[in-house]
Each structure stands twice: as C-alpha cells, then as structure tokens.
C-alpha cells in the first residue's frame, strides 16, 4: 500500500469514527484548525476522550493561509461596476463568489486530509456575465474553473504537458481528480 493510500485509509477510518478531523472557521475566528483527539483502546476500538483545537504546524499551513488571504482579497469583485457600460454586464454577487471560495476551501481541506501538498493557491477574479474564475497557474500547468452567475455548476479546463482536462461539475463537493491532477 502506497503512502498516499495509507494516508487516505487513515483519514477514512478517522472520519468513520469521529467525523471530520477538521473544523472550518471564518478567517476572523482563526481559519482552519484540526480537532485533535486523544484516544484510548476499548473493546469497541478507538474512542475520543477530549478534543484540543490547535493551528496546523505543517507546510500546508502556509498554503492554507495564502488561500485565506486570496479569498479575502477576492471580495473586491463585489465592488466592480459597469465601467464600459456593457450590455452583457451582470453584477458580481456574494452568492457566486461564495460558491467559488467554498469550493476552494473544500478542495484544500480534502488535500490536507489526504496529505497532498502542492495544490497551490489559485487567483480568484472576475469573468464575464457576473461569473467568477478560479485560476491555478504554475510553471508547467494551468487550471481554470469558472463559476457562472445564477447556476450551480462549474466549468473547467486544465492543461499541462501531455495532458488536458475539461468538463463541468457540481462544486458542492470536492473534486479529488482535479486535486491530484494539480498536485502530481
């Protein structure tokens, strides 16, 4: 069993016993934290005795905080006005932005719980007709996910050497295949 498979197995086991090992808090409340369980053996297996919140002391901590900063900075899109007086202009809404940023948080949590490092932090910005782009750009790959205004799906296209991916999905769940595509 590979290291990644072992890590995923451990996370699944923890989730089935304790629920998620993560709590999502607003940035003002300190952002992501682990819920650390102290465990003891019993006939039924591992049981939680207490939980202690703490900051993540790992390389992924920097990635998480960079993502939080990006999410906060992305709120500027809500102030964009129709400077070109475009007929196609649709205002940017907190609902659309929220779909994009919540999906990004889900992906990052999934990455951390799977011990995947290297997903990187995308740029969040405005696109056409009130839609929001989440755009990863690294040395050899790009992934562009667009969250349309007033729709519950997202569209994407990614390119790296010898590989292209595209499609649409429901962003209410993380997409492991995109994560592994970004981080491999």
């Amino acid at each position: 069993m590979s290291r990644l498979e072992k890590a995923l197995d451990r996370v699944r086991s923890e989730r089935s016993t304790f629920g998620s090992a993560y709590e999502i808090r607003s940035p003002k409340e300190g952002g992501l934290s682990f819920v650390e369980y102290t465990t003891a053996r019993s006939k039924s297996g591992l049981i939680p005795i207490t939980s202690v919140g703490r900051q993540v002391p790992s390389p992924t901590d920097r990635e998480w905080h960079a993502m939080e900063e990006e999410i906060i900075a992305s709120e500027y899109v809500l102030t964009i006005e129709n400077d070109l007086e475009l007929e196609d202009f649709v205002p940017y809404t907190r609902s659309t932005l929220g779909r994009a940023t919540q999906f990004l948080q889900r992906m990052m949590i999934y990455a951390h719980s799977s011990n995947v490092v290297g997903m990187g932090v995308p740029r969040i910005g405005p696109a056409d007709r009130g839609s929001i782009d989440v755009f990863w750009e690294t040395r050899d790959r790009t992934l562009l996910i667009n969250f349309p205004s007033g729709e519950t799906i997202a569209n994407y296209f990614g390119r790296k050497p010898k590989s292209e991916i595209s499609g649409r999905f429901d962003p209410s769940e993380p997409r492991p295949e995109l994560l592994f595509w970004l981080a491999d």
Binding site: E87, R123, D133
Partner: peptide, 24 residues
C-alpha cells in the same frame, strides 16, 4: 483591446483569463 482598470484588484495589475470576454 481596452480593459477597465476598475476590474483589477488593488495592488495587483496582472492580466488574468477573465479579461477576455465578449460583449454583444
């Protein structure tokens, strides 16, 4: 191609894919 500066994030003048959009 003309693009409104007001659509850029303060302190970040980089081009991004959302710059390219149709109108009518």
């Amino acid at each position: 191609y003309r693009f409104p500066v007001g659509n850029l994030r303060s302190g970040d003048d980089r081009v991004f894919p959302g710059v390219f959009a149709e109108n009518k």
